[in-house]
Simulated assay, not measured.
Amino acid sequence: MSGLNAFGTQLKRGDGQETEVFTAIADATGISGPGLSRETVDVTSHGSPDAWMEFKGGLKDGGEVSVDINYQPAVHDLLVADFDDDEPRNYQLVFPDDPTTPTTWSFGAILTGFEPDAPYDDKLSASLTFKVTGKPTLS
């Protein structure tokens, strides 16, 4: 099986309305995450077979989503407002695997990082970091 071209992957931001509409975050150049992880609970006892430690699955963490963008202040300043908001917003990560029914991860997240970069010899860009809250839904 060959790999899938990632070109066309989108991170979409929900508008928070009752019938939520999602709009792609413009000019994304790289998207990573969510970085799912899981804690473990040590259930080792004096009776553990052959003195091997034993574990069970613990709490899960949706991790973070990072996105790099070609920063356009007039377009992206609503994201700066998201940084000031304490409540999570809904987002979707949409993959380009199927043009009619693409694979989508939906999740709530809080914008925890917004870092613009303006080098004298390159494009204006920004790196955004979102902390996922709750369980991401894969559809």
Score class of each variant (00 low, 15 high):
F55V: 07
G113S: 15
P102D: 03
E64V: 07
G63N: 02
V21I: 03
E54D: 13
D61C: 06
S2R: 06
G113V: 07
R13V: 00
T103C: 04
I69V: 12
W52M: 14
A109H: 02
T40S: 14
K123G: 11
F83S: 08
L124W: 11
N90Q: 12
S66W: 04
S45A: 15
T23L: 02
V43Y: 14
D68I: 07
P116F: 14
N5F: 04
N90V: 00
L79Y: 12
H76Q: 11
P49W: 11
H46V: 10
L128H: 08
G33T: 08
V94Q: 03
S45E: 08
T112Q: 06
T101F: 06
D15S: 00
I69C: 03
S2K: 05
S66H: 13
S45M: 08
G30D: 08
E54F: 09
D121G: 08
L124R: 11
L79G: 09
G16D: 01
F55C: 05
S2N: 07
S139Q: 10
R89W: 04
G47Q: 15
R13Y: 01
D86L: 15
A51I: 04
Y120W: 10
G63Q: 03
L124V: 09
Y71P: 01
P119K: 10
G134T: 08
F95S: 05
Q92A: 01
P102V: 05
F95D: 03
D27V: 02
T137K: 12
A51Y: 11
L111D: 01
T103D: 05
H76N: 11
P34A: 07
G134R: 06
M53S: 15
D82Y: 10
A6W: 01
G113Y: 06
D50E: 11
A6C: 01
S66A: 13
S66P: 02
D42G: 13
L124F: 12
E115Q: 11
F130T: 04
S139V: 10
F107D: 05
P116W: 09
T44C: 13
T19N: 01
R38I: 11
S66C: 06
H76T: 07
A126C: 14
K56G: 04
A6K: 03
V67S: 05
R38E: 15
T133Q: 12
D77W: 13
T129W: 03
P96S: 11
P119R: 13
G63W: 03
F114A: 09
V21K: 00
A26G: 04
P73D: 14
Y71T: 06
L11Q: 01
D42Y: 10
G108K: 12
F55Q: 09
F55Y: 13
K123L: 14
D117E: 14
